[in-house]
Design a binder for these strands. Structure first.
Length: 693
RNA sequence: GCCGGGAUGGCGAAAUGGUAGACGCAGCGGACUUAAAAUCCGCUGGCCGCAAGGCCGUGCGGGUUCGAGUCCCGCUCCCGGCACCA
């Protein structure tokens, strides 16, 4: 098997996240996946086995005095050796049972802790105390050292185990007053943590003393002690594992490796790439090797150096071998000399905006960062991170569904009594039943069956899935409404990153909008340019509307707020529909801002406007600030923070004039009547607030 | 349990600390039509009121502020991820 040593990059993959413009959720997932934790490794002696040590990893070395027993994973190599004859039968049985269980079975159910005593004892290095060594499957062989010191006083899991098997519990961190829980994992002064009055045979002249120190200080002090006495050291541990990169299948890049006398040899660069042989049969070979083992002609080759017979590696690489660097190669796909030309890489990299699904958070998006850093270290590329800004588009769910529940007898069961298709009152199964939208009504915060208002229904949109039967096929939507309306609807539904339920009626809305935009410029009967489109001078109102739209769309595209950009264009079309004359100088820029959203329609409109060339090369319309200015503005007038009126004033009106006008508003005057004015607040162009009592 | 993100009309949503609900869907009323579809116009958070207007309202409870959907503190629920990681 071939592994990639991604663990060497753990810290850099972690640190690199800080400067990326990525969603917090993905950063959190990657941090969690890498799973860095700081602590210490500590060696415990074993009574009767002076040559052996049990090494543990702990993030709480400050609690060493509270270690009242040890636990080894069932797979730990020392279990066999240290188990006493009296305990051997029980231990072997436990290990066999653990081996039979899947990982899921071992962890899934948060059931009672299980375990078995080995009969052996360890020596706690900080105080010389003998503590029993147990075997339990709550300790994972694959994390840390596969062995733990159990500190029930400060660890929930160890507490549960100690309770189950009647093992001693010693608190070594003073819980706060009134604490009535089990294990205490918070901060506090160390207690019961002084062994400085005695020697620890074979380890130290005097034991350690942490009493009174808080967690952080205690950790530092005990690590110092452990290092001084040679029984432990500071250590950083990761959840991240090295990356198994071999697959026993045909489709995949072959490893450029041949075996000569059973030893792997790199295929020289001039013989690269190693390509797949043509095969008739892609099924598993019947051996642990993949189907390539059956390609005899390809399999057997010679060592280019010595001419000795050689056998090719039959594993292939997984799909990541391509997806981890395609974005680099796409920059310069025909380059025979290098992966990518440095000049081109400098121009394009890093990727400015990566829009993709959240399902790649700890796979592709972590692996690609790793490869990128390897290539960076190798001097092949010049950027340490591949993707600057990352956005996850929210999933589109199926249409909203109203689900009622019926029991075996066909009687409705109100949704609040149902959990996982079980009536929680009777324990009997119920089955979900879809209810049409017009048969439900909202009562307060919940939906109920219209004819039976005491029966609640679940109102929820679900992930599209074949099994649920709520998949919307884009081809059908496009066939009915066109690609422009379909795309526009997807952008109009809501914020890009949000999960949103699909609504075919919603598509009709954007479809209608596009039709209105079309009729704005095209005469439906003749198919020619609408006579209202003229070479006329635009009015101030038209220019204001147009430029407001250009500004809004431009800003919103920049900020990926497509939904509000589309709303602005809808407002433009609604306003323009009321105009008798649509000056060409207004119509053309509008078509241009519409074009990225509805390219087909916009192109057709552009043609009707008399352009022989595509609009793709026309410059994006510029906002002219002076057209945006309004002559009069509406200002809300509040009295004590409540809106009591609204006045229209010239946009450049002085504060005094605005306040005077505000006081004249009939309703405002009424609310001020008989009160003393304490304060007058004026936010230009927005609001007046009179504080009075 | 831990981490991340949410909660605003019947629904999808909008709102630099400044008139909550823009825009769209659905609904209601009207125009056009023999009729329907399409289209166009108007209304549309709740309650009270003939009206003018008033009261309430952005998950819940507090707070800061002239003013809070927005800021702060404490919760609840929902979604996503991780989960015996020592």
């Amino acid at each position: 098997q071939w592994m990639l040593r991604i663990t060497d990059y753990a810290d850099r993959l972690l640190e690199g996240l800080d400067d990326l413009d990525w969603p917090e959720s993905v950063k959190a997932m990657q941090r969690n996946w890498i799973g860095r934790s700081e602590g210490a490794e500590v060696d415990f002696g074993i009574v009767g086995f002076p040559e052996d040590r049990i090494r543990v990893f702990t993030t709480r070395p400050d609690t060493l005095f509270g270690a009242t027993f040890m636990v080894l994973a069932p797979e730990h190599p020392l279990v066999e050796k240290i188990t006493t004859e009296a305990q051997r039968g029980a231990v072997d049985a436990y290990r066999e049972e653990a081996a039979r269980k899947s990982d899921l079975e071992r962890t899934e159910l948060q059931k009672e802790k299980t375990g078995v005593f080995t009969g052996a004892h360890a020596v706690n290095p900080v105080n010389g105390k003998k503590i029993p060594i147990w075997v339990a499957d709550y300790v994972l062989a694959t994390y840390g050292t596969g062995a733990i010191m159990a500190v029930p006083g400060q660890d929930e899991r160890d507490w549960a185990f100690a309770e189950t098997f009647g093992l001693p519990i010693v608190r070594t961190v003073q819980p706060p007053d009134g604490f009535d829980g089990t294990a205490y994992t918070g901060d506090g002064p160390a207690i019961n943590s002084d062994a400085s009055d005695r020697a620890i045979p074979g380890i130290a002249e005097r034991g350690a003393n942490l009493n009174g120190l808080h967690v952080a200080e205690a950790k530092a002090k005990i690590i110092e002690w452990l290092e001084a006495e040679g029984v432990g050291h500071a250590r950083v541990n990761y959840k991240l594992r090295d990356w198994l990169f071999s697959r026993q299948r045909y489709w995949g890049e072959p490893f450029p490796i041949v075996f000569v006398d059973e030893r792997p040899v790199l295929v020289p660069e001039e013989d690269l790439p190693v390509t797949l042989p043509d095969l008739e049969e892609f099924k598993p070979s019947g051996s642990p090797e993949g189907p390539l083992a059956l390609a005899e002609d390809w399999l057997h080759t010679v060592d280019p150096e010595t001419g000795k017979p050689a056998r090719r590696e039959t594993n292939t690489m997984p799909q990541w071998a391509g997806s981890c660097w395609y974005y680099l190669r796409y920059i310069d796909p025909h380059n025979d000399e290098r992966l990518v030309d440095p000049e081109k890489e400098k121009y394009w990299m890093p990727v400015d905006l990566y829009i993709g699904g959240a399902e790649h958070a700890v796979l592709h998006l972590l692996y690609a960062r790793f490869w990128h850093k390897v290539l960076y270290d190798a001097g092949v590329i010049a950027t340490p991170e591949p993707f600057g800004r990352l956005i996850h588009q929210g999933m589109i769910l199926g249409e909203m569904e109203y689900t009622a529940y019926v029991d075996a007898g066909g009687t409705y069961v109100s949704a609040e009594h149902v959990a996982e298709d079980i009536d929680t009152r009777t324990g009997l199964p119920v089955r979900p039943k879809l209810v049409a939208e017009d048969r439900v009504a909202k009562r307060g915060d919940v939906f109920v069956v219209k004819d039976a208002p005491e029966i609640r229904v679940d109102a929820r949109a679900h992930k599209m899935s074949k099994s649920r039967g709520n998949v919307v096929n884009p081809d059908e939507v496009i066939a009915q409404y066109g690609a422009d309306a379909f795309r526009l609807y997807e952008m109009f539904m809501g914020p890009l990153e949000q999960v949103k339920p699909w609504s075919t009626r919603g598509v009709e809305g954007t479809f209608r909008f596009l039709n209105r935009a079309y009729r704005l410029l095209v005469d439906e009967d003749s198919g020619e340019l609408n006579p209202s489109v003229q070479e006329a001078e635009p009015t101030k109102e038209q220019l204001r509307m147009l430029h407001r739209t250009i500004q809004k769309v431009t800003d919103d595209v920049e900020g990926l707020r497509f939904n509000t950009a589309i709303a602005a264009m809808m407002e433009f079309v609604n306003a323009a529909n009321k105009w008798d004359v649509l000056p060409r100088a207004v119509a053309e820029p509008f078509v241009l801002v519409l074009s990225p959203f509805a390219p087909h329609l916009a192109e057709a409109l552009w043609q009707r406007l008399g352009h022989a060339e595509t609009l793709a090369y026309a410059p994006w319309p510029e906002v002219v600030e002076e057209y945006l200015a309004e002559e009069t503005v509406e200002i809300a007038v509040q009295v004590n923070g409540r809106v009591r009126g609204s006045i229209a004033v010239p946009a450049d009106a002085e504060k005094a004039a605005v306040l005077a006008a505000a006081k004249e508003d009939e309703n405002v005057a009424r609310h001020l009547d008989g009160k003393t004015l304490r304060r007058e607040i004026y936010v230009p162009g927005r609001i007046v607030n009179f504080v009075a009592n």
